[in-house]
Write a protein that binds this DNA or RNA. Sequence first.
DNA 1: TTTAATTCCTATTAAATTACTCGGCTTTAA
DNA 2: TTAAAGCCGAGTAATTTAATAGGAATTAAA
Lengths: 158, 158
Amino acid sequence: MKLSTKGRYGLRAVVDIAVCSENEAIALSQIAERQNISVNYLEQLVARLKKAGIVNAIRGAQGGYMLAKPAKDISVGAILRALEGDLNPVDCSEINNNEGNCDNSDSCVTKYVWKRISDSINDAVDGIMLSELVAESKKVQAQMGNTEANNTKQTCGI
Amino acid sequence: MKLSTKGRYGLRAVVDIAVCSENEAIALSQIAERQNISVNYLEQLVARLKKAGIVNAIRGAQGGYMLAKPAKDISVGAILRALEGDLNPVDCSEINNNEGNCDNSDSCVTKYVWKRISDSINDAVDGIMLSELVAESKKVQAQMGNTEANNTKQTCGI
DNA sequence: TTTAATTCCTATTAAATTACTCGGCTTTAA
DNA sequence: TTAAAGCCGAGTAATTTAATAGGAATTAAA
């Protein structure tokens, strides 16, 4: 019952893109360095985000990624589902739309449990917008920047 | 982000025990047959439940398992945590009590997301009592029993 | 027009986890 | 005494995760 690195790394990458690419596209190599994730692996994660319409790519030299829409219109739920697939705790035909076609559905009582877990997870993540994380990130950076002089490596630290 | 078979099979096993062992201990072999899980694997699941104080074992011939306390005093959360370990979506030192000792905690903004997911999952499962599942199971059984005459195999079907 | 930076795409592999199976030991009612 | 149960630890097969690798396509800039 754990998120994989796809979800964990991927959400960090989106926050990075949101914070650091307000005007210009940002290259994966920069995100990779800041977040300490390999470029190759990041590619796979960002591919999912792109497919889901969360980020746009600009190809070629000086290319990179930007948000596909304003951060206030992107929910953490959409990001995590793009990265992880659905966030349901089980593959249950009552929760998903008849995926798996469970033959025991009539007499199954645990499905009520799975449904409640599923709803609570999805409600939670859909209620958080990327813009909130961006705001939090900027706040934290401001604090860190004031107390310590460790803006050594990047101008846009996360 | 899926529950393993431990949680899925194990919760079914607990409901089975709760429904079928009101007076007498019930053998794993019977649960195994009804739930279509191997006895050997069930043993491992039930061992966790026993360790967590959810079921009691009676050893020797005619032995088996019973609930360790009334179903209304056992939450689904306690059952699932006994089977799966904690239900947090990440191993994060802010959520667990300093497990892992994340060195990036100060500047981490995704921890707010993990905390909200974690809380929502735990609140959901702690709000469901085993007794509710037992009641639901009995209701379903009554319906199935009336419409079809398929009480062939067991007196205590689930 | 070349070059270098970058995204795009697919295949392969190493590591970890899951989901069991197996076999022998202990306990106890009949 | 025996058979039916729980108890326990080791081993294994299958699956999933977490990468790594390498080349093709695209494009801004020199």
